[in-house]
Nucleic acid binder design. Structure first.
Length: 280
DNA sequence: TATATTTGACCAAT
DNA sequence: ATTGGTCAAATATA
């Protein structure tokens, strides 16, 4: 699937930032895990990788925002305060007793979990059907997580995903959930494959690192590094969730200031400043 | 053959 | 009566 960017520059920038983020995630995982490196590491090295990851997240989020129709984006931004996007079906709340969490995703509805489709419904006032999924492990492990997926009316390349319930299928009691699985440099980008990070790029060259391929690694014996990298590469909810209130530059400032004397990097070479308003 | 998807039917909420 | 969520038989796929 080709990336539906609003400009070639934005598309190229997204891919470059995504690659940079993946590399930073691997570096962070390796730094944190390797006993020798961890012992002799100068203070702040992990913090630095953390900052790099955060900046990449925000850059990617900003770029993904840039794929939307600017007019609708501006409209959304002004409406955000009055109408928070985290809504859910009243029916689902009644039956499930729980609010859904809506996430907007570009390009892919894959999120690293394995879902089984159990229904599809034409929805009134929407030209796209709503797809109903439950966790594949509902029967085996009693995992009651569900999600609904619907293409955005405003931008059909955006999937509106609403989650209900928590995954209990691949979580140990003392471990946090691992909603995203990375698969660097995967050669397949088909819709049928659980495709990892929402930022994963398609048609990538094959010099990447294949760390894991399915969410089943939750129980695999050689999962330690994969889990470390998963945690590092999981996109923070703040970024994944639709929100127009966060500041993409928040947390990057000190990093930028530290570099400003030596860096000759001109972001304007890569990103049209048409998108800069989206960062404000 | 086992597993996943499709799709019409059913039912509860509105 | 309408709508949306789920079920389950039929069908597709590996």
């Amino acid at each position: 699937m080709a990336m539906a960017c609003s400009s070639p520059a934005a598309c190229a920038a997204s891919e470059l930032v995504a690659k940079g983020r993946e590399s930073a995630a691997i570096l962070q995982a390796l730094l944190g895990q390797h006993p020798v490196v961890a012992d002799e590491m100068p203070d702040g090295l992990l913090d630095l990788t953390e900052k790099i990851l955060r900046c990449c997240d925000r850059a990617l989020a900003a770029l993904s925002v840039g794929t939307e129709d600017p007019a609708s984006g501006a409209r959304k931004r002004t409406m955000a305060a009055a109408a928070p996007l985290a809504t859910s079906s009243k029916r689902m709340r009644v039956s499930g007793g729980e609010k859904g969490r809506r996430v907007e995703k570009q390009q892919t509805m894959e999120d690293g979990f394995i879902w089984r489709k159990y229904g599809q419904k034409e929805i009134c006032d929407s030209k796209y059907p709503r797809l109903y999924f439950r966790c594949t492990y509902k029967d085996d492990r009693g995992c009651m997580a569900k999600r609904q997926v619907q293409q955005s009316e405003a931008n059909h390349s955006v999937y509106l995903i609403t989650y209900f319930g928590e995954h209990t299928c691949c979580r140990h009691d003392d471990e946090p959930p691992a909603p995203f699985v990375i698969n660097f440099g995967s050669s397949t980008c088909g819709d049928g494959q659980p495709n990892v990070s929402p930022w994963s790029s398609c048609g990538d060259d094959d010099d990447g690192l294949a760390v894991s391929e399915t969410s089943d690694l939750c129980n695999s014996p050689e999962k330690e590094l994969a889990e470390l990298i998963e945690q590092s590469t999981a996109v923070p909810e703040q970024v994944a969730m639709s929100s127009w209130e966060w500041d993409p530059l928040d947390g990057c400032l000190d990093w930028e200031l530290a570099d400003e004397d030596t860096s000759s990097f001109d972001i304007g070479q890569f990103i049209s400043f048409d998108y800069i308003y989206l960062l404000q």
